[in-house]
């Protein structure tokens, strides 16, 4: 990846060192073309499939957004979270309550859900600063356990609808566009995913992103170099929660229903599994991870109804054995071995 920064470094080595982030012109042109092709394919999908498949594609995108969020925290900042399902739930419920009680339009409700999660994530991340590693895992786990129970809580029933949850309506295409509700919402989700992916990429490549990664690699060294660990860590928690919350809000609209039972501990675990399967500390891994956590449990059920979990578990273990670094880790390995082969004398 790094050694492809060739063309624009001709002017002088010194300037290329300084502008290491921007000196990737040839790579970014190639990458941009790839992304545009992918985007075109994703848009075309809206007109090629419909019904349940389109719904699955929408869900996949919302999970992918959530996974990008968790990966920002766990993969790039090194803070483990076993409770990100909680933020997924908060995002979903914010959208649900806003649309149900305040008749907020969906395009406003989804970002508001993100902002609520940003605040919630920051508020949780601040005291959690003191906890590290396993202790943070337990704290986030508690968050994942507590949230669905709170959603069921009697005194919040007026807002959350208790165990019954909230029923939502799927938004229709605006401006009289000739699209079905399914198609429109898929494209809307795709647009949100593309924008968030762009934001995440820019965040990671910026100075802030370098600080975030420095904290992961060596907290004390980062601090001694002037990185404000407390600020960056709790801010990353907030941003991560915001991504996951937006994913949750979109999924709520796709399912047209929110209830406490959709956000059990299993969701939090699945999100972590998705991050690891896709590749820890990668952005595009989210797509693979989302596909894994969406489709593999269903396939496992088809293989054996009685032992579906067993099949899923075995697949998961074998997957890690084959790709300890996730899909993106394997791709990087293949890429580097190909590059090495090219360098060998013929």
């Amino acid at each position: 990846m790094q050694n492809m920064t060739t063309t624009s470094t001709t002017s002088s080595t010194a300037s290329s060192v300084i502008s290491a982030g921007a000196a990737t012109t040839s790579r970014s042109y190639l990458g941009l073309a790839g992304i545009l092709v992918l985007l075109a394919l994703a848009i075309a999908l809206a007109f090629m499939v419909k019904g349940y498949v389109l719904f699955q594609a929408t869900m996949l995108l919302s999970y992918a957004i959530a996974l990008v969020g968790l990966n920002l925290l766990t993969g790039y900042n090194g803070q483990i979270s076993l409770g990100h399902g909680a933020f997924f739930a908060i995002g979903a419920y914010t959208v649900g309550v806003l649309m149900d009680k305040a008749s907020t339009p969906y395009w406003l409700a989804v970002p508001v859900g993100g902002i609520v999660c940003l605040a919630a994530g920051y508020a949780f991340g601040r005291p959690a600063l003191k906890l590290q590693g396993l202790y943070l895992a337990l704290a986030t786990f508690a968050l994942g356990v507590v949230t669905p129970q709170l959603l069921k809580y009697k005194h919040l029933e007026h807002w959350t609808g208790g165990v019954g949850g909230i029923v939502l309506t799927k938004p229709e295409a605006p401006f009289g566009l000739p699209l079905t509700a399914d198609q429109w919402f898929y494209l809307f989700t795709l647009a949100v995913a593309a924008v968030l992916m762009w934001l995440a990429r820019n965040l990671i490549d910026s100075g802030t992103g370098r600080a975030i990664r420095a904290i992961r690699d060596h907290e004390m060294a980062a601090e001694s170099m002037g990185v404000d660990n407390r600020h960056y860590k709790s801010m990353t928690f907030g941003i991560s929660a915001a991504f996951t919350g937006i994913g949750g809000g979109l999924s709520a609209l796709a399912v047209q229903f929110v209830s406490p039972d959709s956000f059990t501990m299993f969701l939090s675990i699945s999100l972590l599994v998705g991050v690891v399967v896709g590749g820890v500390g990668t952005l595009w891994g989210a797509a693979f991870g989302a596909a894994f956590i969406m489709f593999v449990p269903n396939m496992a059920e088809k293989v054996s109804k009685d032992a579906a979990w067993g099949v899923y578990g075995v697949v998961l273990i074998l997957f890690i054995f084959v790709m300890p670094g996730g899909v993106m880790g394997l791709l990087a390995k293949v890429k580097s071995s190909l590059a090495r082969r090219k360098d060998l004398p013929v």
């Binding site: 483990i80 972590l272 690891v276 979990w309 075995v314 998961l316």
Partner: peptide
């Protein structure tokens, strides 16, 4: 990586 081992433990739990 550590997280991969965590996921394997989750897999074992399910199995």
């Amino acid at each position: 990586p550590e997280l991969s081992v965590v996921v394997v433990f989750i897999g074992l739990l399910m199995v």
